[in-house]
Design a protein around this nucleic acid. Sequence first.
DNA 1: GTCATATATCCCTTGACAAGAATATTCTCA
DNA 2: TGAGAATATTCTTGTCAAGGGATATATGAC
Lengths: 108, 108
Amino acid sequence: MLTTPLSAIAEPNRMRIVELLRDGPRPVGEIAGRLRLRQPQVSKHLRILRDAGLVKVHPVAQKRIYQLQAKPFKDLGSWLETFRRLWESRLDTLDEYLQDMKGEPKPR
Amino acid sequence: MLTTPLSAIAEPNRMRIVELLRDGPRPVGEIAGRLRLRQPQVSKHLRILRDAGLVKVHPVAQKRIYQLQAKPFKDLGSWLETFRRLWESRLDTLDEYLQDMKGEPKPR
DNA sequence: GTCATATATCCCTTGACAAGAATATTCTCA
DNA sequence: TGAGAATATTCTTGTCAAGGGATATATGAC
């Protein structure tokens, strides 16, 4: 129900599926075979990945070719960028915070 | 139990906590106040974030100042990099895959 | 010591979710 | 049309995790 891209990838088997699809589009059966998973579980995981917008499906005969979508990865990258100062600024802000606290009135 | 950084961030309230800490270290009470969460839940979430290596705690008197850690974000960035060709190569590999399957010439 | 503040942990209930098994659906082709 | 292949869905069950409430622990002030 609540299917955000992040929580979709957080599940270990879905992570494996995503990493497999990183190398190119694959049909369900091949995914199941390579990852040693049962077909129904793979279909269910793909359904969730699809609802999260992480993959898109292309029907070819009876096969369904699943393909990664770029957007959620771009978005995740953008979100990560907002943390860039975390590792770029050598001086962390802890000392700064502690300094601020010194000026505040003491609890009673 | 299985506490990976990704699954830790995937939880909505923990995501909010992480985004709050992005602006700087904060004690538990302030996090609870700003996010309108109850203190025990915040402590529990912080515990999980801490087990996942996302935050570090600095005791100051009775307060515990929580601070984001850079490493997991760097790691996530590195992992995300492995998907870069996804959105850099405008030509996706779907046609290529279909061609392999059918043995047909690429449609024009 | 006692009290107040700040945070952590414990117990409990409830809901979400993943796997398994069986079945349903969709498509191709003879 | 029927058969077989490829995939999707339904139902059930067990597990895990989040929230609520109460309580425990730690620190500082008096």
